[in-house]
Design a protein around this nucleic acid. Structure first.
Length: 476
RNA sequence: CGGGGCGUAGCGCAGUCCGGUUAGCGCGCCUGCUUUGGGAGCAGGAGGUCCUGAGUUCGAAUCUCAGCGCCCCGACCA
């Protein structure tokens, strides 16, 4: 293997794959389009899961689990849904050596199996709301796959809620959108734009789809999470009704929302550099690695002991590791932990022990800081916070520097190709004009923003009146 | 499904055009010694259905035919 990684400048896609290999996150499996998530990569997913799970529970949700298999007839009950998903589904036709009476779809998403179940759970407004999340795997037979960003099978969470009114469902959809935004910004240190998808881009079967969109270091957009207001579509398809307080029978209102292992890909492409993975401290499974250094064998046990003494009080307070392997030299270890994205490395050799200090190295900047050994833990915790903030600010500065406001179509078409980036443009709302964006460069409307000031203008394509700008970019 | 490329050791590759000793190189791995503050050095060693099948030939990694698989570029997508 080459000593260094492919650089982002030379070949961004190859760099992405190199980072995954160097950090030992995942590899291709024997099954086409499916990946093996290795322990180091899975640990990151567990950090993501842990925090999101807390946030879901704080907002009143509970976890449950529904089957992997969905009877074919269920898939066909919601017209738009089946049209959108059927072409990319895996279907089981045989079981126990016999052909099945009815084929079973491997879930591409669980709306249908869940709403067929909710039918039995809901009779009265008193049964509502239902606020359920499930952690699961799903399968979508994609034509082209990329590790973490798009694999045939992937891990995700999907929330499926049931409500008594359209207003309540909309409030839930937006509440989760805000959970996703907070998670992206405060934990992933990834700034996102929040907004609404166009009719063309919305989820198959939804009334409205909201999303968070992030910018990767190649200036392409990545949809990092979606929250759908499903209206009464699935309740109608599965005939799920409830009696309201007036005794009137109504169809139930629904939402669904999800984020996936794609977030690991987002993390990689937001922060990592040409030396490997860079992880935001809050999602780093391992936050500190301590590398004792010795010259002679006699020093080895001494330095190991000093390392254990130094960290004795850290147990249970911070995730750390002492790398005292004797078969590798310090330089090798420095490099290895850099590739793996550990936020803080501590070097401690005989010179440091003599000076009663350690050398602390930041992964985000490479800066080396001498720190006294006394009271080290609080200093490290403060530094982790600082790294977390720095990564967020760095990512936001990058995104802002590559986001442009444009009012002329020719200028847009030229600049989306080179240098690329995010573009705020006026759009009249017609699908014809929406398709036009794609002609120039495969760019699409990523989102109709929620949190930006409205501003009247003229559609950049046709000149018709526009009430606000939308975000256009090339995407993953 | 269209266009391109590739299957040789765990990984990356050379050898294939023009058939011929025991199939080679780098990394990694194992053993030993010397090393250890930014990817160590030396010595020894282990590891191969050359993608599969059939054919041509005295002889096939190499030539022929068929098949399988994977990767990259497009259309589909979290």
């Amino acid at each position: 293997m080459a000593k260094g990684l492919t650089t982002r400048k030379d070949d961004y896609s190859q760099w992405y794959l190199d980072v995954i290999a160097a950090a030992d996150l995942a590899e291709h499996s024997a099954v086409k389009g499916c990946m093996v998530i290795k322990p180091t990569g899975y640990a990151i997913w567990e950090m993501i899961q842990g925090q999101l799970d807390r946030m879901f529970k704080e907002t009143g949700h509970v976890n449950a689990y529904f089957p992997l298999f969905i009877p074919e007839s269920f898939m066909h009950k919601e017209a738009e849904h089946v049209e959108g998903f059927a072409p990319e589904c895996a279907v089981v036709t045989h079981g126990g050596g016999k052909k099945l009476e009815e084929p079973l779809f491997v879930r591409p998403t669980s709306e249908t199996i869940i709403w067929s179940t909710y039918k039995n759970w809901i009779q009265s407004y008193r049964d509502l709301p239902i606020l359920i999340n499930q952690w699961a795997n799903v399968v979508r037979w994609e034509m082209r796959t990329r590790l973490f960003l798009r694999t045939t099978e992937f891990l995700w969470q999907e929330g499926h809620t049931a409500h008594a009114s359209a207003e309540e469902a909309e409030a839930e959809t937006l509440k989760i959108l805000d959970v996703y935004r907070r998670f992206a910004e405060e934990y992933m240190a990834t700034p996102v734009y929040v907004g609404c998808k166009t009719e063309r881009e919305k989820f198959a079967g939804a009334v409205r789809t909201y999303c968070i969109e992030a910018m990767m270091q190649d200036c392409k957009a990545l949809q990092a999470g979606t929250s759908h207001n499903l209206g009464q579509n699935f309740a109608r398809a599965f005939d799920v009704t409830f009696q309201d307080e007036q005794g009137k029978l109504q169809h139930v209102y629904a939402t669904s929302w999800g984020v996936s292992t794609r977030l690991v890909g987002a993390l990689i492409m937001t922060h990592s550099d040409d030396n490997g993975l860079v992880l935001p401290p809050r999602l780093a499974p391992l936050k500190v690695v301590l590398i004792p250094i010795w010259k002679e064998e006699a020093e080895m046990e001494l330095m190991r002991q000093r390392a254990r003494d130094l960290t004795a009080s850290w147990q249970g307070r911070i995730s750390f590791k002492i790398d005292d392997r004797d078969q590798y030299r310090p330089g090798y270890k420095f490099n290895e932990w850099e590739k793996k994205g550990v936020p803080i490395r501590i070097e401690m050799g005989p010179k440091d022990v003599a000076a009663n200090q350690v050398v602390v190295v930041r992964r985000d900047t490479g800066e080396k800081i001498a720190m006294p050994q006394e009271n080290l833990l609080p200093r490290l915790e403060a530094l982790l916070d600082e790294i977390q903030q720095n990564l967020f600010q760095r990512a936001r500065a990058f995104r802002d520097a590559n986001t442009f406001t444009v009012d002329d179509y020719a200028e847009f078409a030229s600049r989306i190709e080179n240098p690329g980036g995010f573009f705020w443009v006026h759009w009249c709302g017609s699908e014809a004009c929406e398709n036009k964006f794609q002609e120039s460069s495969k760019a699409t409307i990523r989102t109709i923003p929620l949190d930006r000031e409205k501003e009247a203008g003229a559609c950049i394509v046709c000149g018709a009146p526009s009430a606000q700008r939308v975000l256009v970019a090339k995407s993953y």
